[in-house]
Design a protein around this nucleic acid. Sequence first.
DNA 1: GCTTATGTTTACGCGCCGGTAGATTGACTA
DNA 2: TAGTCAATCTACCGGCGCGTAAACATAAGC
Lengths: 213, 213
Amino acid sequence: MATSRRRRSPDATRAPGAPISPWRATRERQRDREIKRDAVIRAAAHAFNRKGYHNTSLDDIAAALAVTKPTVYYYVTSKEQLLFECFSAGVEPIRAAFAEARGLRSPGRERLNAVLRRYAQAVASDFGWCMVRAEDEDLPPALSSQIKNAKSEIDQGIRQLLREGMQDGSIHAGDPKMMAFVLAGALNWIAHWYREDQSMSAAEIADAFVRVF
Amino acid sequence: MATSRRRRSPDATRAPGAPISPWRATRERQRDREIKRDAVIRAAAHAFNRKGYHNTSLDDIAAALAVTKPTVYYYVTSKEQLLFECFSAGVEPIRAAFAEARGLRSPGRERLNAVLRRYAQAVASDFGWCMVRAEDEDLPPALSSQIKNAKSEIDQGIRQLLREGMQDGSIHAGDPKMMAFVLAGALNWIAHWYREDQSMSAAEIADAFVRVF
DNA sequence: GCTTATGTTTACGCGCCGGTAGATTGACTA
DNA sequence: TAGTCAATCTACCGGCGCGTAAACATAAGC
């Protein structure tokens, strides 16, 4: 929305070594803008992680970045959107893990383990906390439904890996739905206790968990 | 606090059949008060469960009881305390389950299963939701620390049962701490999805979970 | 019946916080 | 140098929601 007002796009097919375009500065600014926007989202995730969504004001987030509230609003349209962005940032690596696992040829159990490991790491991050705790009640329906879809997608992905593992015999038979609930629950819960008990790294936790299963 | 102003205690050693004490009404009123107070807490738990703590106003809770806000405050000193009471109500049956399990002579695995089953049922209730999601950030330090203690107690209880089960050979060896995290996480997570997917009763879920482990 | 305790109401104060309007600064373009 | 545009600021609005003061009603006790 805020970026839709550019009148001319910079010449993308510039010969190397050619004189620098006068629009270079514009591109740099745009890149700056993305960096700053990311910083806002990261700061928000960190604050939400520590104090909770509702106990964090936008003034808090702005202060953490040493700017003022309207500056935050320059990069983000609302607090709700901010939460949503944090959620998205948390989910993205998990999506990636699934995509990666789909490409592998190893038995289902190993593919599942790989996903779970990445999952655990994602959940242990600042974003992970937002991901796990982003509640539909806190968001307008449009964003809420997107979150539900994403969560459902992950759930189905786990069930699918479980089924594949059962078919190739690498995973003990059982009800995929229940097993997925157990797995997701155990992993998501990491977000709750990891802040207080950081005696292990996220990777170590993931390995320990996989060992338990 | 509100009950500390009674000047004379009713005669507790009254002969049966004797004329009813004029303080009987007082006792009845006191009992009424407790019932009403419980109703307030239940209504709060239900509302928190559906809309979340921060999205529930005390006016909402009052409206659900067809009274006004000050009436709620007549039974409860603050919203925070209300949340704390919901937490306590949720935890209490779990405490009871542990106490019961300690009295049994069966192998550790069965005692643990019994606890987990009750645990799952507690988590699937309205109170359970509050229990799982009551965050220290939302409460004053005094209450927050009590909650932490209760949670820690439960955690230690699970670990203890695991150790006992390992000693008598009924539970496969492993790291009790990690296993407790996995168990608690999987069970607590029930609170998140049970509202939307009520295809099974809490007891069925508990059995299914125990089977997965 | 008069008084006191108990329960509930109406009406309100007030702080916090999400969000915005509009001025301001500064850098890049021509 | 003038003009444009991106970025940030100061100052403010409005409302929601917790919690309270004080009046009012009803029933109990004497």
